[in-house]
């Protein structure tokens, strides 16, 4: 098992290197002055210009530049955001936890919700139950999250006034303890609902198909022949086996979400990585753009690693594979 983890982690490293090199090369493809490409559309004082040229070895051959940039990134130096007057790393470290919070709470609700609906649909003996949820899931999944988010804002925030329309709440809060938690929840509620419903319905659809497939397997016949009851068969033979495809898809979606949900964060002005990326692109704050993209790539790669491990834990056949 440990060897399995080690090998998977080793595979991830070259992938990340390729991504970093690719991103740096793209910066190079921006036509015009390379210093401006790095800094963005800001007037650059000569002293700063010289510092940039030295730091990024802009007068050396391309390969040296790439190697130099890689070395920087490995040390956690993603550059400096001229626009924000802060290091890109500190920006990411400030924004990432908010995006992670939004994604984690959304998936934390979506996974049990989706699994429950999927299992109910896949195992029910009443075709009506299956039809109702299948249709509901199809419709809910087809609605884009940002649009669902806007509907929620219009209804729950503007009309009913139950929740704030946007943001993550005051930076310095006067509330404490339980009241503080409640305040956070009020701000989280609408984006989480929009995101969670969307992902939950996706999970429900996968789970349903997977449960139906599992139920058609031979070992379910064996379980029936053993004289096990319905509930027992579902608990000990259907649940785990039909969760396998879910791990892959939900894990990948979660990794994706860690990179920032651009449209959702825009709708709710949720100051996470997605919003940071949009602002950086708009203002041609290229170092920040590259930093966020590399962070997203790391998030996806790490989540894929976690998915592989979970999969190996759930499916003994993978573990013994050489």
């Amino acid at each position: 098992m440990l060897r399995f983890i080690g090998r998977r982690a080793l595979y991830a490293i070259p992938l990340l290197l390729v991504i970093v090199v690719l991103m740096f090369s793209m910066l190079h493809l921006i036509p015009g002055d390379p210093v401006q490409a790095l800094v963005g559309d800001y007037p650059v004082p000569p002293a700063y210009r010289q510092a940039i040229e030295e730091k990024y070895r802009l007068n050396d051959p391309f390969l040296v530049q790439v190697g130099n940039y890689l070395a920087n990134v490995v040390q956690g130096d993603f550059g400096f955001s001229y626009q924000n007057q802060r290091t890109v790393l500190s920006l990411i470290l400030e924004r990432a936890p908010r995006t992670i919070l939004l994604a984690a709470v959304s998936f934390g609700l979506a996974i049990p919700l989706g699994m429950l609906i999927g299992i109910a649909c896949g195992t029910t003996r009443h075709p009506g139950v299956d039809k109702f949820w299948t249709t509901t899931a199809l419709i809910a999944y087809a609605i884009p999250t940002f649009w669902l988010g806007q509907l929620f804002v219009m209804f729950f925030a503007l009309k009913l006034g139950w929740f704030p329309t946007q943001g993550i709440g005051p930076m310095v809060s006067r509330t404490q303890g339980f009241a503080w938690v409640l305040e956070r929840i009020r701000y989280l509620a609408l984006p989480v609902m929009a995101f969670g419903i969307h992902e939950g319905m996706r999970i429900a659809r996968i789970m349903r198909a997977s449960v139906i497939d599992t139920l058609s397997q031979g070992y379910i016949v064996t379980a029936r022949a053993k004289g096990l009851g319905r509930g027992q068969i579902i608990r000990s033979h259907v649940l785990r086996n039909s969760s396998l495809p879910l791990v892959t898809i939900a894990g990948y979606a979660f990794g994706h979400a860690l990179g920032g949900a651009v449209l959702l964060e825009t709708v709710f002005t949720w100051p996470g990585l997605g919003l940071l990326l949009v602002d950086a692109i708009r203002l041609r704050d290229n170092m920040t753009v590259v930093g966020v993209v590399i962070f997203s790539a790391i998030a996806v790669v790490v989540m894929n690693l976690v998915v592989d491990l979970l999969y190996a834990m759930l499916d003994p056949r993978i573990r013994t594979m050489r």
Partner: peptide
């Protein structure tokens, strides 16, 4: 009652393809 019969002194069955009829995760 059928389940009780299967659990004791009733009938059992074995199949052609034992791999498919065993749960791979247990």
């Amino acid at each position: 009652e059928l389940r009780r019969l299967r659990r004791g002194r009733g009938f059992s069955m074995i199949f052609q393809d034992p791999l498919g009829y065993l749960n791979p995760t247990q």
